[in-house]
Design a protein around this nucleic acid. Structure first.
Lengths: 299, 299
DNA sequence: TGTTTACCATGCGTAAAATTCATGGAGCAC
DNA sequence: GTGCTCCATGAATTTTACGCATGGTAAACA
């Protein structure tokens, strides 16, 4: 393949559009002389003139006329493809369940946006999980799961540990309840399905039998919010209540923690692994949401 | 318009085709390091990787995959257009009538081809004249004419001057005929239409009346050829018989020359005036077929 | 007609970019 | 481990691009 000098071609394109070397130079932030030389280079390459230089403006030779649309189309094709892949590197859609979004991600999100101001990060809080990212509604996902799908990359963030918490206002002047006294209060359940409370009581050495009555909530987040408003005692995932414990809106009522078989992961498709936006978010998320130290809110 | 570095794009294209920087370097006559740097430039421009470097071969990232066909198509578009206009600069189709072709052009044609070996020159000998070059069957034309069409460029080569010639063998041992004795021999007429012989006799001060019987030929060339074979006396255009006079196959029988109102021109469309091939041929033809000195054959 | 004006061309010096060379390092095969 | 094959990279060099200033030309102007 014997291509003409490509930079000269771009100069040719602009000069042909302007019918002027001088104006082309202004557009390209070049001097008129530089434009003239580029055109000369191109004309030397083809061995024929592309412009007819007249004192009264510049016109294209038939060869220049033939070349012009090809160059214009070629460059606009490159421009379109470049624009498409550039956009992908600047945008990032992060998916998280409502609980994780409000309790984990949102408190730290501004920090990330400040560190990477050129990234257009958006938070998607669809419930449910598209296991293969087929819908392409998001690029990277915070997700609790037990099994792994092929084609996806999983970074384990932390296991889930549930501890009992309640608003201090719930007890007013009374002392905080012992485990045995939990049943005197409304028990809030962070799920409709899992039997967190009975598992936790079993772990504590109690067997309350079928006497557990709990108000079930859709999400972990709602149960925590309800508890902090004094509606009762809930089991809360440890990493989600750092803020509330710190500002006193919740108190932890026991050190007994229910550890689930599943864990929280950061997940993204293998083919996005090279995107700088994905890499940046992954590295940041792994350092922020890592296992050992319960994360501190940094608003 | 914000285009990526174009030379780097070409390197990217070749590297993507070879799945190897080293092989791309060989193809492009560059070192492997230079290719590596070009790719780095491009990746820095986009802010994302285009290749996945593995010890076992090179693969494209999804962004590289997206970019590849656009670059390939864009460059092949440029290449096609370049090829088209390059070909136009290397090819030249010269039109001449059979007479001019065989008597003027052909004897000197090899000289031109030797001087411009890169030009693909072809000789088109259609009879008749497409006055506006509309058929596009030829680029430049030797043509006898009186009027000029707009949009065409005319270079006058020489007026036509007809003188009587014959083969010396026609007269054997007899002396060459005087003008009065011409009628004793067959008169060959180089045209079906024009009355060259009667005009020429008038010019010589003779009035042979209607007694002129002439064998008419289609072209000037045929009449000359017939005369050189001893078939009779013909009027021949001066510039077409230099060879024959020089090698003795024809002798000129009088200095009286019939000058026509028309002349021979070299003609080409204005829009081809910038083509180097046209310019080269025009300059050569003007010096070769110029008016004053009767051209010498240079085979 | 002479002058101005608006172009493009070009010689020269400099700044920037491309390229090479030599070397280093990482993964794979044996 | 050892060799092999790639790609990355620091430093030096060559090449190229560029700006500046100037010159030339043809149209427009007055």
């Amino acid at each position: 393949m014997k291509l003409p000098p490509l930079n000269a071609l771009r100069v040719f394109l602009v000069a042909a559009e302007h019918h002027s070397f001088t104006k082309a130079g202004e557009t390209l932030h070049l001097t008129q002389g530089a434009v003239s030389r580029h055109i000369q280079t191109l004309e030397a390459h083809y061995g024929l003139p592309l412009f007819v230089r007249q004192a009264r403006g510049l016109t294209l030779t038939p060869e220049g006329v033939a070349l012009f649309p090809a160059v214009r189309d070629a460059f606009s094709r490159i421009e379109a493809a470049s624009e498409a892949i550039s956009r992908r590197s600047r945008e990032l859609r992060v998916k998280a369940s409502p609980s994780i979004a409000s309790r984990w991600v949102l408190p730290r999100f501004t920090q990330f946006r400040n560190r990477y101001p050129e990234l257009m990060v958006s938070l998607v809080t669809v419930t449910g999980f598209d296991p293969n990212f087929k819908s392409r509604e998001y690029d990277i996902s915070f997700q609790a799961c037990e099994t792994q799908e092929p084609g996806l990359i999983y970074h384990r963030l932390r296991g889930a540990r549930f501890v009992p918490v309640a608003s201090p206002a719930l007890f007013k002047d009374k002392p905080r309840p012992t485990i045995e006294q939990f049943l005197d209060y409304p028990l809030l359940h962070p799920s409709h399905e899992d039997q967190f409370w009975s598992q936790w009581f079993a772990l504590s050495g109690m067997n309350p039998g079928s006497s557990i009555e709990a108000y079930a909530f859709d999400t972990l987040d709602l149960a925590i919010t309800a508890a902090s408003r004094g509606m009762g005692i809930t089991l809360a995932e440890e990493s989600m209540i750092a803020d509330d414990l710190a500002n006193g809106s919740l108190v932890q009522l026991s050190d007994v923690a229910l550890v689930t078989s599943w864990a929280y992961y950061l997940i993204y498709p293998q083919e996005l692994a090279t995107l700088p936006s994905v890499i940046a978010f992954r590295d940041w998320a792994l350092s922020e949401f890592s296992d050992s130290p319960p994360p501190q809110a940094t608003l």
